[in-house]
Design a protein around this nucleic acid. Sequence first.
DNA 1: CATGAATGAGCTTTCATTCAT
DNA 2: AATGAATGAAAGCTCATTCAT
Lengths: 203, 203, 203, 203
Amino acid sequence: MKKSEKTKKKILNETINLIAKKGYASTSTREIAKKAEISEATIFKYYQSKENLLKTIVMETMEKLFESSSEERIPNVLKNNKNKDPEMILRSLIKERLNFFTVHNKELKVVFQEMLINKNVKNYFKEEIWPRMVEISNQIFDQIKAEYELKTEMDNYIFRKSLFGMLFFTILFEEILEENQTIDNKKQADLVTNIIFSGIKKM
Amino acid sequence: MKKSEKTKKKILNETINLIAKKGYASTSTREIAKKAEISEATIFKYYQSKENLLKTIVMETMEKLFESSSEERIPNVLKNNKNKDPEMILRSLIKERLNFFTVHNKELKVVFQEMLINKNVKNYFKEEIWPRMVEISNQIFDQIKAEYELKTEMDNYIFRKSLFGMLFFTILFEEILEENQTIDNKKQADLVTNIIFSGIKKM
Amino acid sequence: MKKSEKTKKKILNETINLIAKKGYASTSTREIAKKAEISEATIFKYYQSKENLLKTIVMETMEKLFESSSEERIPNVLKNNKNKDPEMILRSLIKERLNFFTVHNKELKVVFQEMLINKNVKNYFKEEIWPRMVEISNQIFDQIKAEYELKTEMDNYIFRKSLFGMLFFTILFEEILEENQTIDNKKQADLVTNIIFSGIKKM
Amino acid sequence: MKKSEKTKKKILNETINLIAKKGYASTSTREIAKKAEISEATIFKYYQSKENLLKTIVMETMEKLFESSSEERIPNVLKNNKNKDPEMILRSLIKERLNFFTVHNKELKVVFQEMLINKNVKNYFKEEIWPRMVEISNQIFDQIKAEYELKTEMDNYIFRKSLFGMLFFTILFEEILEENQTIDNKKQADLVTNIIFSGIKKM
DNA sequence: CATGAATGAGCTTTCATTCAT
DNA sequence: AATGAATGAAAGCTCATTCAT
C-alpha cells in the first residue's frame, strides 16, 4: 500500500473508533488527528471536510452491506438456495448477517446512530438503503409464503419489523449492555430463526 | 402553574424537541433559548448546565417508565393478572408499553439515542434502568415458563432480546423510515405477542 | 450613549483604522478585538460576521456621502444656488466634498480600496452609488452647459472623469505620498475649479 | 523559451490575473498553482515566497514604467521634442502613457491597489517610484512654464495632482465602472491635454 | 525539473457559561 | 424572575511553506 493510502486508511479507522464511541458531533478533527498521529491539515487534505469523513464512512459501509463478492453474501444465498427450505435459507442469511455485524460492528454503529440525528445520513439511508433492505426482506418473505401456510394477519411489514428488530437490537445494544452472555453467531441465528418460525414455544 | 414552573417546562420541552431531532451535541443552548422564547441565561438559572438539562430529561423519562401510579402500569399488570394466562398478560403489557412509547416518543428517542454515545447516559441506563428491565422480563418469562412448555434452548436472555428488539425498533426507527403503514397499538401488540408465542406460522 | 452602543462604535472604529491601513483580507478579527479591547466573541455578537463588518462600514459611509441633513450638502447646494453662477456652485460643491473627505478620510479609503478587489463592495458601488454620482455630475454639467459655451468635444463623460479623477486622487493618494505640501480645502477647491473651467493657463 | 522560463512566466501571469481580481491577501498559492497547472511546490521553487511573487510583479512593472528602450518612451519624448510646443509634448506623453496603461492594465492595477494597503509596496513606490514621477512631471511643468504664462497660483504640485489624478482614475476605475463609453487613447489624450491647458470652456 | 505528502500557525466562527443589573 | 453584555476555550478549516523523492 502506498504511504498516502496508509494515511487515509488510518484517518478513517480512528474516525470510526471515535465516532462509534462519542458520536459525530462530539468528535473533533483535533482529536482524530491526534489519534491518527497526523496533523489536522492532513485530514482536510484527504477528506475536505468533517462532514465528508462521515459520508465516506457511511457510504463505504453501506456498499459493503450489499456487496456480493463473497459467495455467502445475501443475493447469492438467495439464488443458490432457490429450491431449498426457506427456513434453512433464512437461517443461513441471518448467520451471514450476524457475521457481517460482528466484523463491521463499529462502522455499523456509526451508521445507525447517526441516522437517528443526522439529516444527510437519515436521507441517504431512507432513500438508498432501506428500499433495498425492504426488497430483500420481501423476496425472503415471498419464498416463505410459497412454502408455508402463515398466520392470516401476517404480512411483509410485520415480518420485516420482527426480523430487523431483533437484528438491529443486536448491533446497537449488545455492546452497551455488555451482558456477558456471549452466544456465537450460529447459535444466535438458530434462535432467531426458530422464534420467527414458531415462537418461543415447543411445537 | 406558577410562571417559573411554566418557563422551566417550556425549556425542557423545547430541549426534548431539539435533541430528539438533532442530538444533544448538535443542539446549542442558544437554539433552545430561541425556541423557548427566553434568554440563554434563564436556562442556566434553572438547569445550571447543558449536561444537567439532558440528565433531567433522561431521569424524568426513566422515572415515568417505571412509574406505577396508573393501574395499568407494568408492575400492576403483573400483580393483577397473577393467575391469568401469561400470553394474555404479555399482550396487555406490550400494548401498555406501546401506548407509553406513543405518548413519550420524543423523550424516549432522546434517552436511547444518547445512550449510544453519551457516557453518563449509558452508565445510568446500564446501572439503573437495564437491571430493572431485566428483572421485569424475568418475571414475565418465569410466569410463561410455569405455564407452557418452551423450546429447550429458550432462556431469559433470548426471550428478552426478541421482545425488546421488536419494541425498541419501533421507537427508534418507525419515525425515520416513515413507512406509511400505520397500525394501532392494540393490533401491533397482538402481532408481536403472536410471534413471540408461535412465530409467523399458523399453528 | 448606552454601554453596548459604545462597544459597537469602538469595534467599528478600530475596524476602520485597521482595514484602512492593511486592507480587509489582512485584518483579522483577533486584531480588531485586541485593539478594541474586547473579546472576539463580542465582535460576532454585534456584527455576526467579518464580511458584515465591512458591509456595515461601506453602507454607513455611503449613506453619509449622500446625506443632506446639513444645509451645505450637495442637493442643497445645488437647489439653493439655482440662479447663481455655475462656476461658483461647483466651487462650493468641491469645497464641501473635500471637507467631507477630510472628515471621513479613513472610511472612504476603505470603501474605495475594497471596491477594487471585493466583489460585493464593487457591485454595491456600481449599482447603488455610482449611478447617483453620475446623476449629480450630470446635473452640474447641465447647469454649466446652460450658462457657458463649452468645447465642442466636451461631454458629461469626460467632465465627470476629470472632476472625479482629481478628487479621488486626493482621497486615495495624498496620505500615501505624504507630500508635505498641505493646502486647505478652500484653496484646493479653487484650484480644481479653475482648472476645470480654464485649465492651467492664465486667460 | 526554455521550459523552466515558460513555467515561471505562466506562474507570474496567473498571479497577476488573480491579484488584480481579488487582491494579494485573498489570493492563495493553491489557487495560483491550480490556474497555472503546476504544483504549489513549484511556485516556491521559482519564487521562494508569496511575498516575493508580489515584489517581482511590482518591480518588473515599475521597471517597465520607466524603461526607455522604445523611442517613444517618456524620457525620449521629452528629449526629442525639446524645442517643440510643450502642449504637443504633453499630448504625446499622455497618449504614450495611456497606451502603456492599456497594455499593462492588470499589473498596474496590482501595483496601485496593493500600494494602498501593503507596507512594502507602499514604501517602494514612495521611495523609488514617486520621486521619479515627480521629477518627470517637474520637467514637463518647467517646459510649459517657460513657454506659457500660467495662472499665478499654479505650481508643480497642483499640476501634478491634476494630471495624475485624471490618469490614475483611468487605470483604477474604468474597469470597475464599466461605462460602455470607450474612447481611444488618442482622443482621450487630446481631451485631457485640452482640459489641462484651457479647461472645459471654449476659448 | 517537479511534485506528493505533510504541517504549524493562523483564520473566522460558535459554544457553554458567568455575572451585574 | 429574567436578561443584556461579555468571554475563554475550542471548533472546523485554510494558509504559506518545507522537504524527501
